[in-house]
Write a protein that binds this DNA or RNA. Structure first.
Length: 259
DNA sequence: GTTCTAGAAC
DNA sequence: GTTCTAGAAC
């Protein structure tokens, strides 16, 4: 290979048991799930395909989505992505357990690829939908995970490409090649939930914290309603509003690598 | 991907 | 004067 291996490629070549537990969340025969070094939400992991003698793909083919799909191994590529999805779902379940334990409720966790990744070696993001994190600093960070903008490609969206005719498949592949996705990172800042727009990142970040808090109290209220099992009480059965988890306590999980 | 920082925006 | 972004360097 022409260039030095990136950190992700180095990890993908190592045996999972040799990786520090502060880096590795979990692994399967074919993948590693690691903590993102610069998490862009309360929970943010990367699922990497391992590079092994019998993984069926070379490191070059596993550089990114484009190189994986462009080598004429369509069925194998589909199988590999399905495997990553399965392992991402395992990670998602672990995140949901942690959410219940630490926050008392669970919220959405997204699974997807960046259309134009900046680090070499294919990686599937598993990220909680709050998008509240000190490492989320710039417009491009936020827009790269906005679930409806088009830069973040949900894994099921990518898998659906395989069900289309080959002309459409090739067109999806071309769109990755032509960097059509890069201008999306410069789009105006808009809340993915309510679509309100913001002039600057600090304002959007404040808004995202408020949205997260609002979701937390809705969810906890609904859970308490279920516990009481007295639905006939309806709106009169008020509980005091839940307090939001302070941002200082959110970063309890250790992180190591990033995209 | 991050850090640094000049100068734009407020 | 301070906040914030965006481009260069890494």
């Amino acid at each position: 290979m022409m260039f030095d291996l990136t950190i992700l490629q180095k990890y993908a070549k190592r045996s999972p048991s040799s990786l520090p537990p502060t880096l590795l969340l979990t692994n399967s025969e074919t993948s590693l799930t690691i903590f993102d070094k610069y998490p862009k939400a309360t929970y943010h992991f990367l699922v990497l395909p391992r590079i092994t003698a019998d993984s069926g793909f070379t490191a070059d083919e596993l550089e990114n989505l484009q190189t994986l799909l462009a080598r004429g191994k369509k069925a194998e590529a589909r199988g590999l992505i399905e495997g990553l999805k399965k392992d991402a779902q395992t990670a998602k379940e672990m995140v949901e357990k942690e959410m219940l334990k630490r926050h008392g409720y669970k919220w959405d966790v997204w699974i997807g690829f960046h259309a134009v990744p900046s680090l070499t070696h294919l990686h599937l993001h598993v990220i909680s939908s709050d998008l509240c994190s000190p490492s989320l600093k710039h417009k491009k960070h936020y827009n790269s995970f906005h679930p409806n903008l088009g830069f973040f490609l949900h894994v099921d969206e990518v898998l659906a490409w395989f069900g289309q005719d080959s002309a459409s498949f090739d067109q999806q592949l071309m769109s990755l090649q032509n960097n059509l996705h890069e201008p999306l990172l410069k789009e105006d800042l808009a809340c993915w939930r309510c679509r309100e727009t913001f002039k600057a990142m600090p304002k959007l970040k404040e808004h995202l914290v408020r949205e997260k808090g609002a979701e937390a109290s809705r969810e906890k209220k609904s859970l308490q309603g279920k516990k009481r099992k007295r639905p006939e009480e309806g709106e009169t059965g008020r509980t005091e509003s839940d307090r939001e988890v302070p941002s200082s306590k959110r970063q309890a999980v250790t992180n190591d690598v990033d995209t």
